[in-house]
């Protein structure tokens, strides 16, 4: 992760804002990583499910139990 001071998108010359911007960038990167992980998990789930969801659901019929 970059520790270089970064400029705020809208400019501004307040030095105090730099770490905050870096933190935001870090958080964004984190969020992106999480979103990527979620994407690949959802892809994996997609790949194991029966492709015809409606048919699977309608076909799942039991007799009552107990």
């Amino acid at each position: 992760m970059s520790t270089q001071p970064q400029k705020r998108p809208q400019g501004g010359n307040d030095d105090g804002a730099a770490p905050e911007a870096a933190a935001t960038a870090g958080a964004n990167a984190q969020a992106q990583k999480r979103a990527g992980e979620l994407d690949s998990l959802l892809d994996e789930i997609d790949s194991v499910l029966e492709s015809n969801a409606e048919e699977f659901v309608k076909g799942f019929v039991q007799k009552g139990g107990e």
Partner: peptide, 15 residues
């Protein structure tokens, strides 16, 4: 498929 749930698509329930 063995499903450890309690209701099917028609609302039949098992426990």
């Amino acid at each position: 498929y063995l499903l450890k749930n309690n209701v099917d698509s028609q609302g039949n329930s098992y426990g």
